[in-house]
Design a binder for these strands. Structure first.
Lengths: 198, 198
DNA sequence: TCATAAACTTACCGCTTGGTAAGTCGACAT
DNA sequence: ATGTCGACTTACCAAGCGGTAAGTTTATGA
């Protein structure tokens, strides 16, 4: 299969899994949306589980790229971490679809035997803990304390990233636009406040 | 049907919908776990959608009770809002199941025509906006700014509330216990920092 | 030119899904 | 005694699910 049609297929699968969840998105529906039959899709990926796994893998690769791509040795560790977290809020870094899918993974992996959704998160979180502890104020903090503060910031970002349809429904397009404009400024303040005071 | 067996049924349905999502939880599975046949369940609730709706309604009632039950006229508006938000972090206020289910609703209601998950949220969020603007520093803030800051705190709380299985998987029981102990302290600091600085 | 292999299609399969129809059973009020 | 009503069972149903088997078409490279 040409690698770009494969990417296209995976894009589509990602969108449908994000929107409907693993159980809600049938392989027939995914295939159909690209003009394929269910069996053709199955031919390429073997099974639904494997397809889902590849979607997840692709997202985690993007995550890794994010870590690697950061500018090294910023002088101010707070500013550095702040920039890193703000990237996560940027929809171009990780697509809204990916954010939704990861949130579903967070909800589902209690019963999923496969730990595919977890292994990359561990490295990611440990990296964040290290970044927090690089801040002078946080030098003697425990890992749990560092993780707590950074996980709160992660929650603030990801929860919002997943709320677009709901918030638009409640406050309308205009209301959401105003919120979306105010959000980054407040987020910067929040990150700064969380990491400075201690 | 006796009202307490009905509550038991709804408890069970809530747990299964929270764990597996609307599509992942079959009415047969829900009924089975209480020793009923699928048809008996269907007899009581009419359809799966209706059962789900009642589960959602029950949760939103608990939400309303939370708003009503608050101590009126705290002198310090920051402390008052902080206490209110900390309640949300307390698992006895809203069960982890309910938190999970609401998070799923946030993800699903894009395609769900029914706005059941939305209407109660509106009042809740508007209440929070009002509470923020009652703080002197925030008096002349826009609604969008107030919503942004409070939504970030909501995200920090709810994201964490949904992460237990994942975090336990990554850091082990002990690691999670340490995090869970450190979390509220950091959360208080975060809320305070977010609402004070401006 | 011919073999090989990838990219499909057609035709199934067994199982589960949500839902319906019709009847059974016991309690209880008239 | 009888009617009736709610709680439940048995027996279905069509549709959808993920997946398999076997064949067909199409491009490619030796």
């Amino acid at each position: 299969m040409a690698s770009d049609t494969r990417e296209q297929l995976l894009d589509n699968a990602e969108a449908l899994f994000a929107e409907r969840g693993f159980y809600g998105a049938s392989i027939a529906a995914i295939a159909n949306e690209l003009g394929l039959t269910k069996q053709a899709l199955l031919h390429h990926f073997g099974s639904k589980e494997k397809l889902y796994g590849e979607v997840l893998k692709r997202i985690s690769v993007r995550f890794d790229d994010l870590s690697k791509g950061e500018e090294l040795a910023a002088f101010d560790p707070i500013a550095s971490l702040q920039a890193y977290l703000l990237q996560l809020h940027n929809p171009t870094t990780l697509s809204p679809n990916a954010t939704r899918l990861l949130m579903r993974e967070l909800l589902d992996n209690k019963r999923r035997v496969d730990t595919a959704g977890t292994w990359y998160l561990k490295a990611f979180l440990e990296g964040l803990i290290a970044k927090v502890k690089a801040i002078p104020n946080w030098h003697n903090a425990t890992d749990a304390e560092a993780l707590a503060v950074v996980y709160q910031l992660l929650g603030a970002i990801n929860y919002y990233g997943v709320s677009t349809p709901t918030l638009t429904g409640i406050f309308g397009e205009d209301g959401y636009a105003a919120l979306d404009q105010a959000f980054p400024k407040q987020l910067k303040r929040l990150i700064n406040a969380a990491l400075t005071a201690r």
